[in-house]
Design a protein around this nucleic acid. Sequence first.
DNA 1: GCATTCTAGTTTGCCATACAAACCTGTCGT
DNA 2: ACGACAGGTTTGTATGGCAAACTAGAATGC
Lengths: 98, 98
Amino acid sequence: MNQQLRAISELDRVIHEPGRLMIVALLSAFKECDFLYLLHETEMNKGNLSSHLARLEEAAYVEIQKTYRGKVPQTVLRLTSAGRKAFDGYRKGLKAAF
Amino acid sequence: MNQQLRAISELDRVIHEPGRLMIVALLSAFKECDFLYLLHETEMNKGNLSSHLARLEEAAYVEIQKTYRGKVPQTVLRLTSAGRKAFDGYRKGLKAAF
DNA sequence: GCATTCTAGTTTGCCATACAAACCTGTCGT
DNA sequence: ACGACAGGTTTGTATGGCAAACTAGAATGC
């Protein structure tokens, strides 16, 4: 297997999924976003966004912090350092592949 | 939705799948490969490779030509022009996203 | 003050699909 | 003739993405 193919086959599937890729890209740019911001920005529906976030949390790539803004519940998302590292690795992998 | 996210969300899922991405990348480099070459190069198993190729054929991205090399059956794969275009588009999408 | 609606998400159900194991068809060696 | 092998394909399963339905609590109408 050549180097290009190796790079492709080693891409992190958790990040590779476009829905999650959008989330991670946003979080890597903004450090901290709330659920609704991601919802509007990605144009996903709530269920979809929620389950992708759950998957990212399970992979320990994002932290999910439930809080309140006054009386309104608010879910704040943050990339963990593992998440940032994984995203950097993913981009390196892409670079190596193309 | 910003331009980066748009690019990500519009990535062609048929090509995006790493297994198929490897296949398409190889075919785009070599114009024509046989099944066994792809098999060894990608390190997939036969079933997996076969079904990814079927999917690419269904999308009209590759042509599958069954022939013989002597008495040994040989399956030759080739990117169609639609396939090449889709791959170019995919790479443009990636560039736009990162 | 009770019902309705709205906000902010989560859970459920279904369908598509990635993957590998089992299978199939023909050839070669002995 | 028969077992092993080559070259793929089909089948079965388990995962996973997606949207619809659900939940909990706050604001609003009557």
